[in-house]
Design a protein around this nucleic acid. Sequence first.
DNA 1: TGCTTGCTTGGAGTGCACTTCAACGTTCTA
DNA 2: TAGAACGTTGAAGTGCACTCCAAGCAAGCA
Lengths: 150, 150
Amino acid sequence: METTPAPSKADVCASGPTAHPRPDGQDHYTISEVVAVTGLTAHTLRWYERIGLMPHIDRSHTGQRRYSNRDLDWLAFVGKLRLTGMPVAHMVRYAELVRVGEDTFEERRELLESTRRDVLSRIAELQDTLSVLDFKIDFYAGARRASERA
Amino acid sequence: METTPAPSKADVCASGPTAHPRPDGQDHYTISEVVAVTGLTAHTLRWYERIGLMPHIDRSHTGQRRYSNRDLDWLAFVGKLRLTGMPVAHMVRYAELVRVGEDTFEERRELLESTRRDVLSRIAELQDTLSVLDFKIDFYAGARRASERA
DNA sequence: TGCTTGCTTGGAGTGCACTTCAACGTTCTA
DNA sequence: TAGAACGTTGAAGTGCACTCCAAGCAAGCA
């Protein structure tokens, strides 16, 4: 599987500054440190790399992965995309576009806007289910009150 | 797999009256009619029955399924639960509670309230991702405008 | 020097929610 | 009466997103 190069600052920064566990320059996290920070498993981190969802990850002189602050930012963004329900294949597509460079800004925007539309309709769908749930919950709560009165 | 008995009116009615394709008394839908109404596949309908998510479905004299308006209502409700993201195993649990009867109102209410909480937090999560998406979309849109000016 | 802990790999396994298959029976239309 | 269309079953297969396994290497420590 291909890996993406380290994305540029603008590609990675999410909304607002995020504090990193270590300052730039000393940011050489082992996989288990990344596990602690992200909540992902080491398996998943290696799998992300294998499917091309991660940029190239630095290695120590013994071949162990050393993640950077930038990798952490990318993982945080991927985490957000995951929460949207975006399929991993689409995230990989996005990672490929980042790898290619600035010429793909437009396609990246389209990808995110389509995801945005999906999120909005999913929210609407969920709000729709809420009224059904509330109706039923009220029914059961009403039945309980009635049996307490009896 | 066990099947549930026909749930009582109160167990099934969703929010508001739903028009049925045929009036009560003439409601003997074939599986393909139910496919057309619900959008589920025939496979899925049979699978739902096998795992205990459906009440007992009437059969014609030749053994073919004949669904009733009540079955359609139940399927509509199951569809709503599916949209909430509730796992099928929980829906089966709910169906079991319906089968047992009115003694399970309280547990059913708890199940739905827990689902409701899940839905609310999922909505919040999605709204959170929206701000990240918007931030990135704005960045790419801004880059486009900048390049058009250049 | 051995032991434990952490990391590496490719490949196989898991759980969910269907989905397809094979083989066959029934019903409808020409 | 032929043939298409629709229905039946149990079992196996699919796609997704991980998740686990076996076997082995490397570093730190009693």
